[in-house]
Design a protein around this nucleic acid. Structure first.
Lengths: 215, 215, 215, 215
DNA sequence: AATGAATGAGTCTTCATTCAT
DNA sequence: CATGAATGAAGACTCATTCAT
C-alpha cells in the first residue's frame, strides 16, 4: 500500500471511528505513518478527503446497483437483489458507509449538495422498485415511503455492527436481510443463497474483493 | 424556559445537528443566548453535558419500557409495544436519540462504559422478547440476534427522518412499525392503533407531552 | 492606553516597519504585550485590522482636506494648503500612511476596492485644484496628470524619512514643501508659516495633537 | 529566455507585485514554470535571490550615473541628467526599483547593510550636485537635504505608476521631470529632449534596451 | 447571576528547504 | 537537469476553560 492509499485508508478508518470533527490532522498523519505536512502531498484539504471518500463510495454503490438490478422485471427479484447488494456493501466497506451515513453534516454546503444528490439518486431506485411492487400487487404496504425509509435504515445499520469475524457469513447475512425485507413488504417468498449469486459476483467485482466461495 | 433548560436544549439541538466535536462552546452559548462564560454556571464540562443528555434519554427509555411492557406475557403483544415505544421515543425526541446513537464514541472511556451499560440493558429487553417469541413459536427467524439488530436499526432510524410536520401521524407511525416488525418476525397479526393506546399514554407521561388524541 | 489601542498601535508600527506579510500574529502579540489568543478579543482577522487602519487614516485625511481647503477659491492658496496638509499628515502619522501607501496589494479584492475608492476620492481633490490653476493661468504645466503624480509621490515620501526628532520643524517642513510644489507648478509665490496657520490647526484637531506652537 | 532568467524575472515580478514576504516559493515556481525543487538549481535561498536583484539594480544605476554624469561641471546639466536617468531607470525597470525601494526591510542585517551602502553611495551623487549648485548660485533652497529627499521620492515614485503603454513617452517623461526638478530648485532653465540624448543612450546601453527613437 | 478578559493548547494549513532518484 | 517526496517550523486562527469583577 503506497502513501496515497495509506492516507485514504487512515481517513476512512478514523472518520468512521471518531467522526470527521473528532479526527485531527495529526491523528491522520499518525495512522498513515506520515508527518502531518507530508499528508498534504496526497490530499487537498481535510474536507476534500471526506468528499472523495463519500463520492467514491456512493458512485460504487450506484455502479453496483446498475450492474446487479435490471431496470424492469419482477419487483420481488429486484428488491431482494438491491437489499442484498446494500447489505453486502455495508458489510464489506463498513468504514466508507458509516462515513457516508454519519458525516454528511460535516460537509460545506456545496459539497453536501453534490453528495446528497448522489444519495438521492440511489434511494430513488428503492422507491421505484417498491412502487412497482405495490402496483403489481407483489408488495403490500399502506405507507410505501415510510416502509422504504424503514428498510433503508435497517439495511444501513449493518455497517454499525457486522463483523466478518463473527459467526454470520456474508451470504447468510444477505439472504437473511433480503428475506426480512420481503416479509416486511408482505411478500411470501423465501430467499436462498443461490438467488443472490449474481449479486455477490457484482459486489466482488465492484469492490475488488477476492471471490471467496462460502463467504 | 429558564437558562439551564436553554443550555440543555441548545446542546441537544447542536450535538444532534453538528455532532459533539463539531459543536463549539461558543455555538452553544449563541444558541442558548448566553455568554460562553455564563454557560459554565449551568454545566460542568462540555462532556458532562453530553453524558447528562445521554443518560437521561436512556433512563427515560428504560423507564418507559418498564412501564409499558410486562416482564412476561404474549411475546407478540410485548414486541409490538416495545417497537411502538422505541419508535415513538425516537420520533418525539429525535435530538436526544440521535445524540445517543451517534456520539457514544465522543465519550471518554469511563463515561462510555456507563452509557453503554444502560444501552445494553435496554437492548436486553429486545433480546428477551424475541427469544421468548421464538421459543413459543410465535416468531420465526433462524438468526434471532441478526433480526434483533436489524429491527433496532430500523426503528432507531426514525430519528433521522421523521418530522411531526409531515403527513404521518405518530400513532400511524407506531402502528406501521409494529406491523413491519411482526411481519419480519413471521407473525401474521395486524396491529391497530387501539392496541398501542397504553403505550402512547406511557410515552406522553414519561416525556411530559400534552396528550394529543389523534396524534 | 488600553488593550484595544495597544493592538492597533502595534499593528501600525509593525505593518509599517516590516510589512503586512512580514508581520506575524505573534509579533503583534508581543508588541501589544498580550498573548496571541487574547489578540483576537480586540480584532477580527489580521486583514480586518489592516483595513481598519487604512480606512481610518484615509477618512481622516479626507476629513482634514475638507476642513482645510475650500471647494473654490484661489488655486494657489488651495494647493499650498493641500500640500501642507498632506505633508503634515504624513509627518505626523508616518506609520499609518506608510501602511496605506505600501500595503494596498496585501488586501483581498473587495477590501482593496473600498480602500482604493477612498484614495481616489482624495486624489481627485489634487486633480481638481491643479486643473483649476492651469485653467486660471496660475499654474504652468503641459502634463497636469504627470505633475500631480509627481507632487503626490514627493509629498508622500515624507513618511519614509521625516523624524520629529530631526532638525526640521513641522511648520518648516510644510512651508518648504508648499513652496517646492508651487515652484514645480511654475507659480512665483513664496510661502510663509503664517499662511498655513489654519491648516496646522486643522491637523492638530483631526489627529488629536496637542497644539505645539513653533512645531 | 532560459530557466535561470525565468526564475529571476518571476522573482522581480512577484516581489514587486506582492512583496517578498507575500511571495511564496511555490508562487515563484509557478510563475517560472518550474517545480519548486527545480527552482533551487538556479538560486540559493529566497533571500539570496532578493539580494541579487537589489544589488544588480543598484549597481546598474550607479554604473549608469557614472557614465551619464561627469563628476564636475555645470550643476544644472548634471542635475537634469541625473534626474532623467533616475526617472528612466524607474520607468524602464519598475519591478526591480520597486523591490529596491520597498523590500529593504525584508533583508537580514548583513545583507541590508550592503544594499543600503550602495543606495547611500548613489544618493551621495544627488547630494553633491545639489550642494555644488547651491554653492555656485545655480540652485536656491534653504534646506538642501529636505529638497534632495523630496526630489528623490518624487522621481522614484515613477516606478509606482508609469506604464509604457500610457500616453507619455519616455523622453517626455524624462524631460518633464528634469524640468520639475530644476523649477523646484529655483533654476529658470527649460529642458528639451535633445539635452537628454546622451542620458538616454546610456540607459539604453546599461539596461540592454533596443534604441527606439521617439520613445 | 452574569460576563469581559484572558490564555495554553490546540486547530488546519503552508512555509522554505532538502534529498534521493 | 529535473522532480516527487518529505519535513520541522511556522502561519493564522479557535478551542474549552478559568477568573476577577
Amino acid at each position: 500500500m503506497n502513501s496515497a492509499e495509506r492516507v485514504r485508508a487512515a481517513a476512512v478508518k478514523l472518520f468512521a471511528a471518531k467522526g470527521f470533527h473528532g479526527t485531527g490532522i495529526r491523528d491522520l498523519a499518525q495512522e498513515a505513518e506520515l508527518s502531518s505536512a507530508t499528508l498534504y502531498h496526497y490530499m487537498g484539504t481535510k474536507e476534500d478527503l471526506l468528499v472523495e471518500i463519500m463520492t467514491t463510495a456512493l458512485r460504487r454503490l450506484l455502479d453496483a446497483a446498475g450492474k446487479a438490478t435490471p431496470e424492469h422485471g419482477d419487483p420481488m427479484v429486484r428488491l431482494r437483489t438491491l437489499v442484498a447488494l446494500h447489505v453486502l456493501a455495508h458489510a464489506v466497506q463498513p468504514g466508507e458507509t458509516r462515513v457516508v451515513d454519519n458525516e454528511v453534516d460535516a460537509l460545506s454546503a456545496p459539497a453536501r449538495a453534490r453528495v446528497v444528490a448522489l444519495r438521492d439518486e440511489y434511494e430513488q431506485r428503492w422507491a421505484q422498485i417498491i412502487e412497482d411492487g405495490v402496483e403489481s400487487g407483489a408488495f403490500h404496504t399502506d405507507r410505501p415511503a415510510v416502509t422504504r425509509l424503514a428498510l433503508l435504515e435497517m439495511c444501513s445499520g449493518v455497517a454499525r455492527w457486522y463483523s466478518p469475524r463473527g459467526p454470520v457469513r456474508l451470504d447468510e447475512l444477505a439472504t437473511h436481510y433480503a428475506e426480512l425485507a420481503l416479509r416486511a413488504l408482505g411478500h411470501p417468498a423465501t430467499v436462498r443463497a443461490e438467488d443472490l449469486r449474481h449479486c455477490m459476483d457484482v459486489v466482488a467485482q465492484v469492490w475488488d474483493l477476492p471471490v471467496q466461495p462460502g463467504n
